[in-house]
Amino acid sequence: MNEVPPSQDEPDEVDEFYRRTSSLDPGRPSESVRQVVLKHAAQLAAHRAAQQAPARIHTRAPAAKQGWRRPAIFGTLAAAALAGLLVAPRFLVEPAAGPGPAVGPSQRQDVSAAPAAEATTAAERPSADMLAPAPPPAPATAPRAPVARTAAPRVSPGTAASPTMDRNLPAIGSLSGGAPAIAPQNSLAKAQGFAAPLGGMAHAADPAAALRRAAEIGDVPGLQRLLDEQVDIEARDSSGRTGLMLATLRGQIKAVDALLAHGADPNAADAQGNTPLQIALAGGDPAIVAALQRAGAR
């Protein structure tokens, strides 16, 4: 997969100069980063390998021990056939008595729409993947490398422990031709913009997390639903960010408006002390800045 991809411009002397000079650049990532990353990856791998082992053992179970399956299958089939014989005549008689079609238009539509729905699901699969339960926690808490600026104030969406990290999953389907599932609100959202509304499934697990997620990706209908359900609007993620902060960070003006309309605190700072207004100013979102200021942000 390392062949020259399509639509690559012809090799340019600038590119050659860049590569030649870069190869001489002594700059390297710090060794501590490498060690931390590889250690973390090894822990996850060990965990996954351990999880898969029981499944393999199960598939290798000797067939002799599964002799009970045959009579069970035959019994089930026989019961189904008997039920069919008893119930089917009723349905065979009914059409003569009434004008209603056996399969209504809406049902036919559903059937014909099935491939489309399937295609939609496939196109959105990466987003759906984002809904999948996060991989089980690593055996040990993922450490951070002792890099120099870790203490500096920052807003770091999606640290390893953050539930928002899932947004980094690109929609591979869209990379290979599909359109992003939602229209991004600005350049940052565009950079992030491969996500689809998530409200439903995430909601089942943690309504507050679902609210933050909906705010972050600009899923206004989902957000509205959660707000109507009185989900805690000020609930914070592991970095101390509210839904309003995440919506601001992602440039989701409609989500910002919805949250402010429901009384979100416009001055709720994150764990690093960053306020939504500071983030909006840093991100150059005049509409969000204005909305926050109207709501009393300082």
């Binding site: 980063v33 990353v37 973390h40 993922a142 770091s156």
Partner: peptide, 16 residues
Amino acid sequence: DELMQEVWFAVARDAT
């Protein structure tokens, strides 16, 4: 360096 760590943590976690 910080970003590098975050990127590769994400790769490790989301490999599946």
